[in-house]
Amino acid sequence: MFLQILVNGVVLGCLYACIAAGFSLVWGVLNVINLMHGSFIVLGSYLAWGAYHSMGVSPWVTIAIAAPLFYLMGYLVQRGVLNRVMAAPVLVTLTLTFGMDLILNNAMILAFKADYRKLILDPPLGTVAWGSVVVPVDRLVATVFALVLTGALYVLLRRTRMGRAIIAVRLDRDAARLMGVDVPVTYAAAFGLGAAMAGCAGVLLALIFPISPLSSIPYLGKAFVVCVLGGLGSVPGAVLGGLVLGLVESFGAMAIGPEHAVTLSFALLIGFLVFRPQGLLGKRGFE
């Protein structure tokens, strides 16, 4: 039983890390709290659902389509809209993403209705069992993909020219400009990466959770909690925060009932904000 809960927690935690990594990147680098992040995730889920049920495209393939598509969307949102108000106080960008989220979310309600949908793989992938621990294969594969995506973001930030520019802008914007970095373009790239991570996470979550525009707020809430737990602005922080949240929810649901899992995660959020606001790995600098 203990092992089963542990495995459930780790599976959930990896997905949370994937949800939060892009949100944390945008918050950390741009100082923009992107309230559209949850709706981006849901949009990714609809993409997976539509691609599978109307065209028979497997979700694993859809990820490869979602990543560039969402990157482009994020890039354009940042270049066309958010870059105009980057010098303004954080409340302005917060209000702006709040408004754009209302538009995006209501557009999804119009397009897809508020009904819950489910992506059901046919034939189902079944389950694997080790002793008493049973895990559905689709969840397992989604977990592995979530880890690979999060790891890819880490490598991209550490090893590529674009990634180094993003980190440089986060660490010292004027020094980055002196190196020849184009700051507005770098902001757009970072926002695009955040959107791509959200879209890909949405594709994976479509395999596990029901899809509805109403899910955007809970997803956004998870991203918030993970960022606060792990510390803002680092991929390892998002992974650690995601795992902690996944395990706490998993064991908490067992101990005090699944209906209290959300209460528990937000109690954790408040506790961290009061006693350790920098998070577990919190430090300046995106890694």
Partner: peptide, 15 residues
């Protein structure tokens, strides 16, 4: 760029 390594800093100079 304090959190970057010395070599990463130097490579930023050649951005």
């Amino acid at each position: 760029f304090g959190a970057m390594s010395v070599e990463e800093n130097l490579l930023m100079g050649a951005y």
